[in-house]
């Protein structure tokens, strides 16, 4: 069973293909790489595969999908509480 996938080399997030619990050691599909998950990550949601500093770009499938609005440690859940899009929404807020 595939537990998680990182779509392109260089992505700093992975996608959970099963719900992940805190403390889980998750194997990334197609890689000899395990990430320790530090908080629950719901099915299909994102987690960081490396530390991401505030303001750093979030990259999925080789594309910038937003930036971190908090420091994100490896293995944390990545979603609207700690990242924001840069297009359309952020511009509205003058970002």
């Amino acid at each position: 069973m595939i537990e998680a996938i990182v779509l392109k080399p260089g992505d700093n997030i992975g996608v959970a293909l099963v719900g992940l619990n805190a403390g889980a050691e998750v194997k990334i599909y197609g890689q000899e790489k395990w990430i320790e998950i530090t908080e629950p990550v719901p099915y299909q949601h994102k987690f960081s595969v490396k530390r991401i500093d505030t303001g750093e770009e979030i990259i999925k499938d080789g594309v910038v999908i937003g930036k971190a609005i908090q420091d994100i440690e490896q293995g944390q859940h990545v979603h609207i509480h700690n990242m924001t899009g840069l297009r359309l929404k952020a511009k509205m807020q003058g970002g």
Binding site: V15, Q44, D61, V63, G66, T84, G85, R87
Partner: peptide, 27 residues
């Protein structure tokens, strides 16, 4: 002048895990 977050991506997109319009576009 509208804020489209909540329209695109929509509430269901966001609940399921899409965090931004760009992420939706990538898919």
């Amino acid at each position: 002048g509208h804020d489209f977050f909540g329209s695109n991506p929509d509430p269901q997109n966001i609940t399921e895990g899409l965090s931004s319009l760009e992420e939706k576009s990538v898919g």
